[in-house]
Each structure stands twice: as structure tokens, then as C-alpha cells.
Amino acid sequence: MRINCPHCGPRDRREFTYQGDALALDRPDPEAGPDVWNDYIHNRDNPAGPTRELWYHETGCAAWLVVTRDTVTHDIHAVELASAVKGAGK
């Protein structure tokens, strides 16, 4: 599995750290209530197929990436900088 970092080019999987579903970029409002927060923290779509997730280029450029990846084939379809993804870190 190689991830094509927008900064560094294609790099080996071992340079990256996995964070989880990219839903972490859509942090709910602090007052959104327990249901919304429970869903955000614990529940996952967990698809067998394409999914968007957060990876950190740890021993590379130290950028956070949004990676669109197939959990069945491990194919990587798209890699974007999390800082460039709309709504990231808002």
C-alpha cells in the first residue's frame, strides 16, 4: 500500500499513521447533545468498500491527509491535504 502524498509523492505505508474515518473533520457543535456526540465519537459506517479516512504523514512532511481508500482491495483512489478539504479544522 503506497499513499501518494500531495507534498512528498508516493510513499510507503510505513511512513503514515492512521487516525480513522474522516468524519473527525466534521466535529459537532459542543452543544449538539449526547446523541450527536456519541455518534461522532463511537459509531462508524465501517464500509466494506470505498471510505474516506485521515492519515498523518508522520515520518514525511507531517501533513494530515484525507485518503479515499477501498477497505476490500486496499486501492487508494484519492489523496487530499486535510487543510485543503472544505470545512477542515473549522
Binding site: 480513522g20 474515518d21 455518534d39 463511537h42 459509531n43 462508524r44 459506517d45 465501517n46 464500509p47 466494506a48 477497505t71
Partner: peptide
């Protein structure tokens, strides 16, 4: 490991990642 897919058949979203 397939809990997410099967629960989704019942409209459930689980606190599980495979």
C-alpha cells in the same frame, strides 16, 4: 468483522471498525 454490514441491514450503525 462483518458486524457493521449485517447490522446495517437492520438500519443500525455500530460502534465498530473492522
Amino acid at each position: 468483522g462483518r458486524s457493521g454490514q449485517v447490522a446495517a441491514m437492520a438500519g443500525m450503525r455500530l460502534p465498530i471498525e473492522s
